[in-house]
Design a protein around this nucleic acid. Structure first.
Lengths: 231, 231
DNA sequence: TAGATTGTTAATCGATTAACAATC
DNA sequence: TAGATTGTTAATCGATTAACAATC
């Protein structure tokens, strides 16, 4: 009852604040106001203050937020205060990109192993880790206590991969495959479906209103023949 | 005034409905109820009906929606009724994955060209197109009337790439770089920042409540020394 | 006609914005 | 003390859910 669960929209913004703070600290900025954070992030200052206030009073009235202090707090809120070990399943181009990126650019995450079922890819080195056959994943998951898994396999094998890793203890999946995964209660799935993103972007890339007006017109025109088209 | 703009949340769901309909049609299902669509998508039947009703009355009371008919309508709504030509900037692993995926698995999108500034990558073949130097992009954008662009370059060159493509007519960007892009009014940017996704997933991967309680306790404990830590 | 399911209106819920008192 | 900016409460806005009349 003391903390009722924080909304997803708030949680999605925290890593963005974190990234901005990392940049500011690199530039040796020590204090930042919600106004300035707003400029950097595109969110309103009010929203930023409100988001942070869910977790505590991290700022100083009259001056702003200490960047190092706030960064530390956000890291603890998200749970990034110790490096998170992950595995990547699917060693194609996407899996390779994800592995490389996290190993070299993401200090909060470590990739312990990469798996694939394609014999051609097994043994391949990515940055400094070797691609292992998927059968080895249960062993690695248990050995390292892996809770977070990235799935970058084709759509038709994503569900079986998910079943396998969840069975051995994975609690959170970042799913790049274009399918809806079924997982037991208590397991979290985030979908990073790039096709969906791209298609919804296409909606906005051309004159929205014009297209919808045309559509409405078509519907009206086909009204008489409706029973035809529509059964 | 006839159609006031449709909300982003609705638009994000349309490609998911489309994907499900594509699958159903492949399985030769002809009629589907909002209830069944709900099972497939995870959204509620009420929400699905409401989403679709923004654009017209596509169903038949008593039976449901004709899959082929509904698919056709959604395709027109999103603007996928003719193939969308795109370009990919950044031919690393991510750019390669995006290009391959769209060329082979996404029938609604065509990748016309891939660009990079790294001489080692120029000339490389991806699926059947050649990686070109980025200087060639204005020419290609104009020649094909490119409106949609995928950016998969490192964070520090993303803004200049965005400026370049927008200058030559791009109206929508799917941005994979971990930076906030500044673009003129009327240009749409969707961020597909995989680090952000991963970090917000990590939040949910370990006991949320426990962590937040600990944090609150820490704040209280450091109350007396607050002026120290915090200036 | 009876059963089923849509399309739409009303009610609820949640998230964002606005306003301002607290306070550095 | 005056100026600035936070933290928090209240007001607004938007999206989801519930309910049901329309109708196949």
């Amino acid at each position: 009852m003391p903390n009722r669960s924080i909304s997803k929209s708030v949680i999605k913004r925290l890593p963005i604040y974190l990234r901005i703070l990392d940049q500011l600290i690199r530039r040796e900025v020590e204090i930042i106001s919600s106004k300035e954070l707003s400029n950097e992030s595109g969110f309103t200052a009010e929203q930023i203050r409100k988001d942070l206030a869910y977790f505590g009073a991290f700022g100083t009235r009259g001056s702003g937020y200490n960047t190092v202090f706030l960064r530390e707090k956000i890291i603890k809120i998200i749970g990034l205060d110790s490096v998170t070990d992950t595995i990547v399943i699917g060693a194609g181009n996407l899996g390779t990109a994800l592995t490389r990126y996290n190993l070299t650019k993401n200090p909060y995450v470590n990739v312990v192993a990469v798996f694939d079922k394609n014999p051609d890819l097994i043994g391949k080195k990515i940055h400094n880790i070797e691609v292992l056959p998927i059968e080895k994943s249960p062993e690695i998951i248990k050995k390292h206590g892996i809770k977070v898994c990235l799935i970058s396999v084709p759509g038709d094998s994503a569900q079986e991969v998910a079943d396998l890793v969840v069975e051995h203890g994975v609690k959170a999946i970042l799913n790049f495959a274009p399918v809806k995964l079924s997982v037991p209660e208590g397991v979290h799935v985030h979908n990073a479906d790039l096709t969906i993103e791209l298609q919804s972007l296409i909606y906005y890339s051309s004159a929205e209103e014009e297209r919808l007006t045309r559509l409405k017109k078509e519907m009206k025109d086909s009204h008489s023949s409706k029973s035809f088209t529509h059964e």
